[in-house]
Design a binder for these strands. Structure first.
Lengths: 185, 185
DNA sequence: AGGAGCATCTTGTCAATGACAAGATAGGAT
DNA sequence: ATCCTATCTTGTCATTGACAAGATGCTCCT
């Protein structure tokens, strides 16, 4: 959709999204400034508004991209444990995406593309958990998926918030794997 | 500390913190406006700056209060499972506190009072996990605590983000208990 | 009692920002 | 060639955070 080609300035839409990722990495999604993005892209201060309407529009596009990226990472994982590790790895590696994705107050949660992308992530997660031989009652899969999602998401957000003690180390994949193992038993 | 008594206007510091909780509940911590708080309290636009310096100062005070509140809730819990439920319940009930506490980019993470309060929360959490008869190797307590913290924190943040499917229901305590049970086995 | 000193709060101001409106520019369609 | 429309610019306004300087009133000391 919105096939942006090089018009006056170039592929501005894409350039703005890239600049946004960079800026969010530096100052966080809350302090993101459209005018700063315009400066980074070398265009006037009102140019971003044309492509995204407002700040929420831009972050909506970013969040949708992020959910698609995450879905792919989850699909590529070999098993549930590795999917959890991939989830944490995504959060740390693509911090800017992750920080936007789970802050619906920053974007339009009713956007069609965003909802579709988020659903792809959810499906990837559930399909991984469904392969588990838990042998529990039917319907347990939902709760297992929720538990797996919760522990991976919790570890990722605590890591990003810098809330974890130093003793956890500096290797998120390794630390995440040890913690996630507590669930699978 | 900072025993604020009724001077010119009243207990302004306390009034501003209360107004901040209200405002954050309405628009989130990012969109919080010091001038709006001043209007709510019926004072001039620069009055908040005197008590808290800047927005980060105010949110630092809020976060510290929040960590103390949370620590008390965790201490009051009967066992680890109920501590996890209390954690989620705190996040949902005191959403404004919770949303500030884990966003260090909004406050001063090096504040002494805040660090002390956060440490009280952490100690309450670990002491609960330490009573578990896991029988694992020594040092497992740390990882158990981290896993418990992660799953409770993850469920809470996903709940607050509105990311959970409707099927989870509208009772956070009940839903959290079912999910947290997956960990204790 | 009375004044000094200080915490508290106000008024005024500035740069930055988001949002909007109106105009300029250029590529493509007819 | 001319119109048309998407793209981008210029200009503007209200809001905000931060700072500076001044006004107000409590408190304490003598």
């Amino acid at each position: 959709m919105t096939e942006t080609r090089a018009y006056h300035h170039g592929d501005l839409r894409r350039a703005l999204l890239a600049a946004a990722l960079e800026a969010i990495g530096e100052v966080g999604p809350a302090a993101l400034s459209l005018r700063d993005l315009a400066r980074r892209a070398g265009v006037s201060h009102a140019a971003p508004a044309h492509h995204f309407g407002d700040k929420a529009g831009l972050l909506t596009a970013l969040a949708a991209q992020g959910f698609d990226l995450l879905a792919q990472k989850l699909i590529d994982a070999d098993d549930v444990l590795e999917a959890g590790v991939a989830y944490v790895d995504f959060a740390v590696t693509h911090r800017a995406y992750f920080e936007v994705m789970f802050r619906p107050e920053f974007y339009r949660a009713d956007d069609a593309e965003l909802i579709a992308a988020r659903e792809r992530s959810g499906a990837a997660l559930r399909s991984g958990v469904a392969t588990l031989p838990t042998g529990g009652a039917p319907g347990d899969t939902d709760r297992d998926a929720l538990a797996a999602w919760s522990i991976a998401h919790g570890f990722a957000t605590l890591w990003l918030a810098g809330a974890l003690p130093e003793r956890v180390g500096d290797n998120p994949r390794k630390a995440a794997r040890e913690v996630l193992r507590r669930l699978a038993t």
